[in-house]
Computed example of a mutant assay.
Amino acid sequence: MLTASDLPLITFIDIEASGLEPESYPIELGWADTLGNGDGFLVRPLHEWTHWDPVAASIHGIQRDELFEKGLPVHEAAVRLNDMLGCEVVFCDGLDSDQFWLNRLFDAAGVEPSFELADFHQLHTLLSKQHMVSLQHILKGLPIPHRAQADAERYANAVLASYS
């Protein structure tokens, strides 16, 4: 049986987007791992990225103007993710959507991602059934912040809590 000291490095990523429609794009990226590392940043939209869903904005609370003031250019955002995530397998809670938005970012940046995205449920290959059940129970009791880094930290912290 795994103990917390035997826990492999597990990294989570979360992406906030301009909406859920096909013309949406990533606006905030965040990641966190089980060693306590993490990062998060806004992404400055390209000029052709104009879609903005007010319902999505009411959930994540990010203003479009804020993206232009504080967001990283798409190339810098893609390189920063690669630099921080290396060749890891990174877990997310919405594989189809998150893969779409990462592809959108990396394609626009002209950069290949160095890391691989995996679905949260694939954690069963790293964690025991008992820890997966505990992890899911812990997550149900935690609020969802709807901010990228905080959402990724929620998962990393829940994994750690499933071992205590």
Rank of each mutant, 00 (worst) to 15 (best):
M1N: 11
A4M: 14
D6V: 03
D6M: 10
L7P: 05
L7C: 14
I10T: 06
I13F: 14
I13E: 06
D14G: 06
D14P: 09
I15D: 00
I15L: 08
I15R: 01
E16F: 08
S18C: 04
S18F: 02
E21K: 12
P22E: 02
Y25S: 06
Y25H: 13
Y25W: 15
Y25C: 02
P26C: 13
G30T: 02
T34R: 03
T34H: 10
L35K: 10
L35G: 09
G36L: 08
D39M: 15
G40I: 05
F41Q: 08
F41L: 11
V43H: 06
V43T: 03
H47M: 12
E48F: 09
E48D: 13
T50I: 12
T50M: 11
H51P: 10
W52H: 07
D53R: 06
P54G: 04
A56F: 04
A56H: 01
A57P: 07
A57D: 10
S58I: 10
G61Y: 07
Q63D: 12
R64T: 13
D65H: 11
D65W: 11
D65G: 13
D65C: 09
E66R: 13
F68M: 08
F68W: 11
E69K: 11
P73G: 13
P73R: 14
H75C: 09
H75G: 09
E76R: 15
A77E: 03
A78C: 09
A78K: 08
V79H: 09
L81H: 11
D83K: 14
L85Y: 10
L85E: 08
L85S: 13
G86K: 07
C87Q: 15
C87I: 12
V89F: 10
V89D: 10
V90P: 03
F91G: 02
F91Q: 04
D93A: 07
D93C: 08
G94I: 02
G94R: 01
G94Y: 04
L95V: 07
D96A: 14
S97E: 10
D98S: 03
Q99R: 14
W101N: 12
W101Q: 07
R104T: 14
R104I: 04
L105K: 05
L105H: 11
V111R: 07
V111M: 04
V111P: 07
E112T: 15
S114E: 14
S114P: 09
F115I: 02
L117M: 05
D119Q: 07
D119F: 00
F120V: 00
H121G: 06
L127I: 00
L127H: 02
S128P: 05
Q130P: 08
Q130I: 12
H131C: 01
M132I: 04
V133D: 11
S134P: 04
L135S: 01
L135R: 00
L135Y: 02
Q136E: 15
Q136G: 09
Q136L: 03
L139H: 02
G141N: 05
P143I: 00
H146F: 03
Q149D: 13
D151E: 10
A152L: 07
A152F: 12
E153H: 13
E153P: 06
R154I: 00
Y155D: 00
Y155E: 01
A156K: 05
A156E: 13
N157F: 06
A158F: 01
V159M: 07
V159Y: 02
L160I: 12
L160S: 07
A161I: 02
A161E: 14
S162R: 01
S162K: 00
Y163W: 15
S164R: 15
